[in-house]
Design a protein around this nucleic acid. Structure first.
Lengths: 173, 173
DNA sequence: CAAGATTGAACTATCAATCTTC
DNA sequence: GAAGATTGATAGTTCAATCTTG
């Protein structure tokens, strides 16, 4: 019992068991499940080993490095990194203590906070990027054909609609 | 700087910056990244809210429920759930204390340990399954066409080759 | 009082070290 | 001494509560 009925060779499988997913659906889900677990783990390991950064920390610094003025509102940064406000806030505290970013209250109209990448933070991401990108290529991108990449973009788009009832602004970055 | 060059409108972008990934590759990676973060989070939430189980705990119980004798060696269970031995061991301790599984030394030749699902554990997974499967359908499976599912299985297979140098035994379960 | 953001407490995962068995 | 498995310490995430501003 996970996403389908118990194995038929089990003598005491519940009689009411039905197939919840077809074989194809089940295969897709299990494959996706394994990939979602192992791919981030592999990228995390490389970053920890070579750069003493987590994948999430990398994402935060990277998104800031690409933003105009290297600045983003905490709220937007959370959305770009798919993180909860709480998670981002904790990590921002660490990154701020490390000297990689600064937080400033939005002046003028002000209930929001800006995160700004420091020069040190920019140097850090520039240093870390090549190794990370190489890992993304080796473990992910280079494993796939252009057509598979295209389909994957479609797939992720469809899934996002189911996860974010509210709108995708547009392409990120 | 994340997986490609810094934005062109940045006055002080490093002159040596190059495109690390093509637009398509970058889009695929960012889309995948968001999906890998949000999909497990959504499934976790449903299970926590309705069943007081984490997604990983669910997977552990589910894999056991499908195994012959509802029994698996810890090592195999770790592989099936894409977890480190350490992670599985900690969770097994919790699940054992909750009465959902038992651990027994493999008798006869014995450096390995068996995890056995209890009747209580089986009841738990049977109870949790419908809600979980409904969520998997709503957030993932039903968003995709059969063709997309097929491609996704291929994609995950290719990526797995890059992540597990060693062999995939065969279809899981 | 709602939105944006942060905090502290409880929980979970990861890493290195350990223990046992072959 | 290596494989299978576990443990304890450390680090990170989540949840609920809080604080501030419009």
């Amino acid at each position: 019992v996970s996403t389908h009925a118990a194995s038929p060779d089990l003598p005491d499988a519940s009689p009411g068991d039905r197939h919840w997913l077809t074989d194809q659906e089940r295969a897709a889900w299990l494959a996706m499940s394994a990939m979602m677990t192992k791919l981030p783990a592999a990228l995390d390991q490389q970053l920890q080993r070579d750069c003493d950064l987590s994948l999430f920390e990398y994402m935060v610094l990277a998104m800031l490095s690409e933003a105009p003025q290297r600045t983003l509102r905490m709220n937007d940064l959370a959305a770009l990194t798919s993180a909860s406000p709480s998670r981002l806030s904790h990590v921002a505290t660490r990154l701020e203590n490390a000297g990689y970013l600064e937080r400033r209250r939005c002046e003028g109209r002000g209930r929001s906070t800006n995160a700004v990448l420091t020069a040190q933070g920019y140097a850090r991401i520039v240093e870390a990027a090549p190794g990370h990108v190489a890992e993304v290529r080796e473990r992910f991108i280079d494993a796939l054909s252009p057509q598979q990449l295209t389909t994957l973009i479609e797939i992720a788009g469809e899934v996002r609609k189911r996860l974010d009832p509210e709108g995708p602004w547009e392409a990120v970055g």
